[in-house]
Protein backbone atom coordinates (compact mmCIF):
# COMPACT_ATOMS: atom_id res chain seq x y z
CA UNK A 1 0.00 0.00 0.00
CA UNK A 2 1.23 3.43 -0.90
CA UNK A 3 2.14 5.84 1.87
CA UNK A 4 1.71 8.93 -0.28
CA UNK A 5 -2.04 9.39 -0.33
CA UNK A 6 -2.87 12.97 -1.23
CA UNK A 7 -4.66 14.19 1.88
CA UNK A 8 -4.98 17.66 0.29
CA UNK A 9 -7.48 16.22 -2.16
CA UNK A 10 -9.83 15.32 0.72
CA UNK A 11 -11.97 17.79 2.62
CA UNK A 12 -11.43 16.53 6.17
CA UNK A 13 -13.21 17.45 9.34
CA UNK A 14 -10.60 17.84 12.08
CA UNK A 15 -10.77 17.11 15.82
CA UNK A 16 -7.89 17.55 18.23
CA UNK A 17 -8.36 15.85 21.61
CA UNK A 18 -6.33 15.26 24.73
CA UNK A 19 -5.05 11.72 25.33
CA UNK A 20 -8.33 10.85 26.95
CA UNK A 21 -10.61 7.91 26.20
CA UNK A 22 -13.75 9.88 27.09
CA UNK A 23 -12.87 12.60 24.58
CA UNK A 24 -12.15 9.86 22.05
CA UNK A 25 -15.63 8.48 22.62
CA UNK A 26 -17.18 11.80 21.51
CA UNK A 27 -15.18 11.79 18.28
CA UNK A 28 -16.17 8.19 17.59
CA UNK A 29 -19.82 9.12 18.07
CA UNK A 30 -19.52 12.04 15.63
CA UNK A 31 -17.90 9.85 12.97
CA UNK A 32 -20.41 7.04 13.46
CA UNK A 33 -23.26 9.50 13.07
CA UNK A 34 -21.83 10.44 9.66
CA UNK A 35 -21.53 6.73 8.84
CA UNK A 36 -25.21 6.29 9.70
CA UNK A 37 -26.21 9.30 7.60
CA UNK A 38 -24.29 7.91 4.62
CA UNK A 39 -26.10 4.58 4.95
CA UNK A 40 -23.13 2.26 5.39
CA UNK A 41 -24.42 -1.28 5.95
CA UNK A 42 -24.26 -3.19 9.23
CA UNK A 43 -21.02 -5.05 8.47
CA UNK A 44 -19.28 -1.88 7.27
CA UNK A 45 -20.42 -0.01 10.37
CA UNK A 46 -19.18 -2.85 12.59
CA UNK A 47 -15.80 -2.70 10.83
CA UNK A 48 -15.46 1.08 11.13
CA UNK A 49 -16.46 1.06 14.80
CA UNK A 50 -13.80 -1.58 15.47
CA UNK A 51 -11.09 0.25 13.52
CA UNK A 52 -11.86 3.56 15.24
CA UNK A 53 -11.66 1.91 18.64
CA UNK A 54 -8.33 0.27 17.83
CA UNK A 55 -6.77 3.35 16.22
CA UNK A 56 -7.79 5.74 19.00
CA UNK A 57 -6.81 3.36 21.79
CA UNK A 58 -3.44 2.77 20.13
CA UNK A 59 -2.85 6.52 19.72
CA UNK A 60 -3.78 7.34 23.33
CA UNK A 61 -2.30 4.34 25.14
CA UNK A 62 0.64 3.26 23.05
CA UNK A 63 1.43 6.32 20.92
CA UNK A 64 1.08 9.02 23.55
CA UNK A 65 1.63 6.58 26.41
CA UNK A 66 -1.43 7.97 28.19
CA UNK A 67 0.36 11.33 28.62
CA UNK A 68 -2.46 13.84 29.05
CA UNK A 69 -0.23 16.71 27.84
CA UNK A 70 -0.06 15.09 24.42
CA UNK A 71 -2.81 15.32 21.84
CA UNK A 72 -4.42 13.10 19.26
CA UNK A 73 -5.54 14.61 15.97
CA UNK A 74 -8.37 12.91 14.12
CA UNK A 75 -9.20 13.89 10.56
CA UNK A 76 -12.15 12.25 8.88
CA UNK A 77 -14.12 12.48 5.68
CA UNK A 78 -17.22 10.36 5.28
CA UNK A 79 -19.15 10.24 2.03
CA UNK A 80 -21.59 7.75 0.49
CA UNK A 81 -18.54 6.36 -1.34
CA UNK A 82 -16.13 5.79 1.54
CA UNK A 83 -14.99 6.69 5.02
CA UNK A 84 -11.42 7.99 5.33
CA UNK A 85 -9.92 8.47 8.80
CA UNK A 86 -6.45 9.68 9.78
CA UNK A 87 -5.38 9.42 13.44
CA UNK A 88 -2.13 11.12 14.49
CA UNK A 89 -0.46 10.93 17.88
CA UNK A 90 2.50 12.81 19.37
CA UNK A 91 4.47 9.78 20.51
CA UNK A 92 7.78 8.23 19.51
CA UNK A 93 6.30 6.28 16.64
CA UNK A 94 6.89 2.62 15.87
CA UNK A 95 7.67 0.29 13.01
CA UNK A 96 4.49 -1.60 12.11
CA UNK A 97 6.51 -4.26 10.30
CA UNK A 98 8.27 -5.07 13.58
CA UNK A 99 5.02 -5.90 15.36
CA UNK A 100 4.96 -9.70 15.76
CA UNK A 101 2.25 -11.74 14.07
CA UNK A 102 -0.42 -12.19 16.74
CA UNK A 103 -1.87 -15.18 14.86
CA UNK A 104 1.33 -17.20 15.26
CA UNK A 105 0.38 -20.25 17.35
CA UNK A 106 3.13 -19.46 19.85
CA UNK A 107 1.64 -15.99 20.46
CA UNK A 108 -2.06 -16.81 20.77
CA UNK A 109 -2.03 -16.64 24.55
CA UNK A 110 -0.41 -13.19 24.67
CA UNK A 111 -3.17 -10.75 25.65
CA UNK A 112 -2.10 -7.74 23.56
CA UNK A 113 -1.06 -6.82 20.02
CA UNK A 114 -4.16 -7.60 17.93
CA UNK A 115 -5.38 -4.11 17.04
CA UNK A 116 -3.32 -3.70 13.88
CA UNK A 117 -4.26 -7.16 12.62
CA UNK A 118 -7.96 -6.39 13.10
CA UNK A 119 -7.70 -3.02 11.38
CA UNK A 120 -5.94 -4.56 8.40
CA UNK A 121 -8.55 -7.32 8.19
CA UNK A 122 -11.56 -5.04 8.34
CA UNK A 123 -10.44 -1.95 6.40
CA UNK A 124 -9.95 -1.68 2.64
CA UNK A 125 -6.76 0.31 3.20
CA UNK A 126 -4.54 0.79 6.24
CA UNK A 127 -1.37 2.80 5.94
CA UNK A 128 1.08 3.87 8.66
CA UNK A 129 2.95 7.13 8.11
CA UNK A 130 5.25 9.51 9.99
CA UNK A 131 7.20 6.60 11.50
CA UNK A 132 4.01 5.02 12.83
CA UNK A 133 2.70 8.16 14.53
CA UNK A 134 -0.09 8.38 11.99
CA UNK A 135 -2.49 5.77 10.69
CA UNK A 136 -4.64 6.36 7.62
CA UNK A 137 -7.50 3.98 6.95
CA UNK A 138 -10.32 3.68 4.47
CA UNK A 139 -13.55 1.70 4.38
CA UNK A 140 -15.43 1.78 1.09
CA UNK A 141 -19.20 1.65 1.14
CA UNK A 142 -20.93 -1.13 -0.76
CA UNK A 143 -22.59 0.50 -3.74
CA UNK A 144 -25.32 -2.16 -3.80
CA UNK A 145 -26.72 -0.37 -0.77
CA UNK A 146 -29.04 2.48 -1.90
Amino acid sequence: MSADHDDNAIDFEVCIINSDLVEARNVKSAILERIRQCNFNENETFAIKLALEEALTNAIKHGNGGDSSKHVTIRYAVSPKEAVVVVTDEGEGFLPDNVPDCTDVSRLSIPSGRGITLMRAYMDEVCYRSNGREVYFVKRRSQSNP
Binding site: T57, L108, S109, P111, R114, G115
Partner: peptide, 17 residues
Protein backbone atom coordinates in the same frame (compact mmCIF):
# COMPACT_ATOMS: atom_id res chain seq x y z
CA UNK B 1 -22.69 -8.87 22.64
CA UNK B 2 -22.67 -7.00 19.33
CA UNK B 3 -19.18 -5.48 19.40
CA UNK B 4 -15.85 -6.21 20.96
CA UNK B 5 -12.31 -4.88 20.58
CA UNK B 6 -8.80 -6.27 20.82
CA UNK B 7 -8.69 -5.07 24.43
CA UNK B 8 -11.68 -7.32 25.16
CA UNK B 9 -9.86 -10.24 23.53
CA UNK B 10 -6.89 -9.49 25.79
CA UNK B 11 -9.13 -9.59 28.84
CA UNK B 12 -10.53 -12.98 27.74
CA UNK B 13 -7.03 -14.38 27.18
CA UNK B 14 -5.96 -13.24 30.65
CA UNK B 15 -9.06 -14.82 32.16
CA UNK B 16 -8.44 -18.08 30.28
CA UNK B 17 -4.91 -18.17 31.70
Amino acid sequence: VEHLSSAALGMLITLNK
